[in-house]
């Protein structure tokens, strides 16, 4: 009976927390859209430039006509309100580039590749970094720990685009092991299904390696730091004093606690991943979100840029919320005290 009440209270607490958090996140999202919208619209240049200023045949009249078509002749706050109202219907508007297709469709086409590659490398990062962090923390100052530290610093300092160039040079040009550009080979349409899969996989090996190396340094360092912190706690001392075997102390008592902050870091790493995709996709000519955004920026495609920024912000916020919920579910201290740990 008591248990039931306890569980209901806990459930209520979590729901309240999520509600509060969602409300706050809606506000943050509004803030982000306001800042982005005004910065982008007030900056010099306009989506009509490519079709008017750069085209000697188009005059002032054509420009005004285009601006009226896009609604750019109206006051800025009215444009913003319009945009928000449409956003509430999940309508991101049409792209202002020549094809004028809906922003959402264009993003949806590109999303799977970017998200897929990022998730794959994130999984690889976790699989490698967590054990590495644990081992280096347990054997602090050993040779392995030192070697890892050196590697971590190199990883932090390595510009992803330079690593990409080096790998292209070594694997693509020097040895011709792997393709260095695009998502598919020229003869893609002639291949059978499995060969097509293999072909895409081959094209994605280098990008995935680069994303993974990029995330590995930070994650293993962080895991090591969390682990070290936990290992100095009193309950670890207690567990050792009880005479528990070392591996039980480490796996049951230390690792489970050290993993908690990593959940938060995962949520926070999303903006970096999105930013990194612009560079890596442009190097390897991968048709993903990053490339779409880059092209949109170059063409001053307002609706497309806003669509991407909103998507980026939503993904980031969703990541944070998810991390928060997982954290709440995973950490017994937060579970039992409920809303106190806000």
């Amino acid at each position: 009976m008591r248990n039931k009440v306890f569980f209901r209270g806990r459930f209520l607490n979590i729901v309240l927390r999520i509600l509060k958090k969602t409300l706050w996140m809606t506000l943050v999202l509004m803030g982000i859209t306001v800042i982005s919208f005004f910065v982008i619209h007030l900056a010099p240049g306009s989506p009509t430039d490519t079709e008017t200023t750069l085209n000697p045949l188009a005059g002032e009249a054509a420009r005004r006509q285009l601006e009226a078509l896009y609604g750019l002749d109206r006051p800025l706050h009215a444009q913003y309100l319009d945009w928000v109202v449409r956003l509430l219907h999940f309508d991101f508007g049409n792209s202002m580039s020549a094809d004028a297709r809906p922003v959402l469709t264009k993003i949806a086409e590109r999303l799977p590749l970017t998200v897929g590659v990022n998730l794959l490398s994130l999984a690889l990062v976790l699989v490698i970094a967590i054990p590495l962090g644990i081992v280096t923390a347990c054997r602090q100052n050993s040779l392995l720990d030192r070697a890892t530290t050196v590697f971590v610093f190199l990883g932090f300092a390595m510009p992803s685009f330079w690593l990409a160039l080096l790998l292209m040079l070594f694997c693509g040009i020097e040895h011709q092991w792997l393709p260095v550009s695009g998502l598919t080979s020229l003869n893609f349409s002639e291949l059978g299904f499995w060969e097509q899969c293999a072909d895409v996989a081959q094209h994605l090996i280098l990008p995935v390696i680069i994303y993974t190396v990029g995330g590995l340094a930070g994650m293993s360092r962080y895991m090591r730091a969390c682990m070290l912190e936990v290992l100095h706690q009193d309950y670890i001392l207690t567990a050792k004093a009880k005479g528990l075997p070392r591996h039980v102390v480490i796996v049951r008592h230390a690792v489970r606690n050290a993993l908690l902050p990593v959940i938060t870091l995962l949520g926070l790493s999303i903006p970096g991943l999105i930013g990194g995709s612009v560079i890596i996709e442009s190097i390897f000519a991968l048709p993903g979100l990053g490339q779409l955004f880059y092209a949109a920026v170059m063409a001053r495609d307002y609706t497309m840029i806003m669509g991407n920024l909103v998507l980026g912000a939503v993904l980031t916020l969703a990541g944070n919320l998810l991390a928060d919920i997982c954290y709440g579910l995973a950490d017994p201290r937060i579970r039992s005290f409920g809303g106190e740990c806000e």
Partner: peptide, 21 residues
């Protein structure tokens, strides 16, 4: 600070720089 941390900041930097020349 929280809002700024949620920005995909490299996207924004890219957009602003491209616009401002």
């Amino acid at each position: 600070v929280d809002i700024m941390l949620c920005f995909p900041s490299f996207f924004l930097i890219l957009a602003v720089i491209a616009f401002l020349e």
